[in-house]
Simulated assay, not measured.
Amino acid sequence: MKVWLPPYRVELEVHGATFGDFVEGPGDEALFSERMAETFREEGLTGLLGFHPVEVSRVRAKRKRPKSGSVPRYFVVSPCFGRGAVDEARSHLRHTKPMTCAECRYRGLDSIHGFSLEPGTWQGEDVFRPRGLQGTIIVSERFARFVTRHAFTNTKLTPTEEYVWDPGQP
């Protein structure tokens, strides 16, 4: 993926009556509302890079117009590439190719039906991309409690053992 460079401009697509605190962004980035970004930093959570302000150039409402007239400020963040590595023996992954790089552990992936990390590889980041599943954002239990405690919106967290990604199935 190409890196998103400044100026950071977005068009938001709103699917409900409120703006979300978390917005999946282009490429490997995500958007955090100002409230979520400030609270993340205040609580000392780790694993996100950037926190650059974003200019919202347009808002499109898909279902209802948002109740709030003002668009919240957003910041672009990038989850770091962590040292945590997918445990091939304890995970349920289907591959199309053999592993070619022991560091990134990339290989063709057909589907995921739950996974876990190798013991001793995770270094405690609260948000990161693991080795072996670089396209997937992993969060710690501490981050999950953070989201619940502050009632941040537009986030759906799934335990790794229940995570399913299978583009071949409807």
Results as ranks from 00 to 15, higher is better:
T96K: 03
R9K: 15
F128S: 08
Y8G: 06
A85V: 13
P6Y: 03
E43S: 00
E141V: 11
V76S: 05
R145I: 03
T46K: 15
C80D: 12
F115R: 10
R149A: 14
P66N: 08
Y8S: 03
A85Q: 14
A61T: 06
V3Q: 10
T158G: 00
R105I: 02
R58E: 15
P159C: 03
D87I: 05
S33I: 02
R149V: 07
R58C: 14
D110F: 06
R35Y: 00
C101E: 12
E24R: 15
Y106H: 10
V3W: 00
R131F: 04
R73S: 13
T18D: 14
E161G: 00
E162D: 14
R63C: 03
L133S: 07
G44T: 08
R9L: 06
E125K: 01
D110E: 15
D110L: 15
H15E: 14
V139H: 00
P72V: 09
P130M: 04
F75E: 01
Q134W: 07
E13I: 14
S70M: 10
T153M: 01
P6K: 09
G120V: 03
H113D: 11
T39C: 11
G69V: 06
S33R: 04
L5Q: 13
L48A: 04
E43M: 10
F128A: 10
T155L: 15
A37C: 09
E162Y: 00
V56L: 08
Y106Q: 07
V23T: 08
V56W: 08
H52F: 11
S116V: 14
E42I: 04
L117N: 01
V59C: 09
A17N: 07
K2Y: 05
K2D: 13
R60D: 11
R90D: 02
A144N: 07
E55C: 07
Y163P: 03
K62Y: 01
T46D: 09
K2H: 07
L49C: 00
Y74H: 01
E34Q: 13
G124S: 02
L31V: 02
R142T: 14
A37I: 10
R131T: 09
V3C: 02
E161C: 05
I137F: 03
F143H: 06
D21L: 02
D166L: 03
R41A: 03
G25V: 14
K2S: 12
H95W: 13
D28M: 09
H95A: 13
V23N: 08
V77F: 01
G135T: 09
G16L: 02
D28F: 04
S33L: 08
W4A: 06
H52N: 12
S111C: 13
D166G: 01
V56D: 09
A30L: 15
V3K: 08
V14S: 08
T18R: 13
Q169H: 07
G50Y: 01
R131G: 05
R142N: 09
V71W: 06
E55R: 13
L133V: 06
P119H: 05
P66C: 09
